[in-house]
Amino acid sequence: MKTEFGFSSTALEVSEGIDLTGRRAVVTGASSGIGVETARALATRGAEVTLAVRDTEAGERTARDIGGNVHVARLDLTDLASVEAFTSAWTGPLHVLVNNAGVMATPQQHTEQGWEWQFATNHLGHFALTTNLHQALKAAGNARIVSLTSTGHMISPVVFDDIHYAFRPYDPWSAYGQSKTANVLFAVEATRRWAEDGITANAVMPGAILTNLQRHTEGQGSGTMPAELLKTVEQGAATSVLVATSPLLEGIGGRYFNDCDEAQTVDRRGELPRLQGVARYALDPDAAARLWAYSENLLAKA
Rank of each mutant, 00 (worst) to 15 (best):
111 T>N: 09
51 L>A: 06
161 D>F: 03
171 D>G: 11
118 Q>L: 07
137 L>E: 05
301 K>F: 02
294 Y>K: 11
277 G>M: 13
15 S>C: 15
73 A>M: 08
151 T>H: 15
285 P>S: 05
182 A>R: 04
20 L>H: 08
210 L>M: 15
125 G>C: 01
31 S>E: 04
130 T>C: 03
40 R>Y: 10
51 L>G: 00
204 V>N: 01
91 T>E: 14
253 G>K: 07
12 L>C: 10
30 A>S: 10
74 R>G: 11
216 H>W: 14
194 W>R: 03
7 F>E: 11
230 L>A: 09
217 T>D: 09
298 L>C: 10
64 R>I: 07
137 L>C: 05
230 L>K: 11
166 A>W: 08
10 T>G: 07
175 A>D: 02
166 A>C: 09
300 A>Y: 05
90 W>V: 07
23 R>A: 05
108 Q>M: 14
153 H>D: 01
82 S>C: 07
235 Q>R: 11
205 M>N: 15
116 E>L: 05
218 E>C: 14
26 V>Q: 03
52 A>P: 12
188 V>E: 00
149 T>I: 09
188 V>P: 00
254 G>M: 13
145 I>C: 08
124 L>C: 02
154 M>E: 04
146 V>E: 05
94 L>P: 07
68 G>H: 12
163 I>W: 00
192 R>S: 01
130 T>N: 01
179 S>A: 01
273 P>H: 02
23 R>L: 14
280 R>Y: 15
6 G>E: 04
35 G>E: 00
184 V>E: 01
232 T>H: 12
68 G>K: 12
44 T>C: 07
123 H>W: 14
160 F>P: 09
151 T>V: 15
205 M>V: 13
98 V>W: 11
136 A>D: 02
275 L>H: 10
217 T>S: 13
214 Q>W: 11
64 R>D: 13
283 L>I: 04
295 S>I: 06
185 L>M: 06
215 R>F: 13
281 Y>E: 13
158 V>I: 06
102 G>M: 01
17 G>P: 12
131 T>R: 12
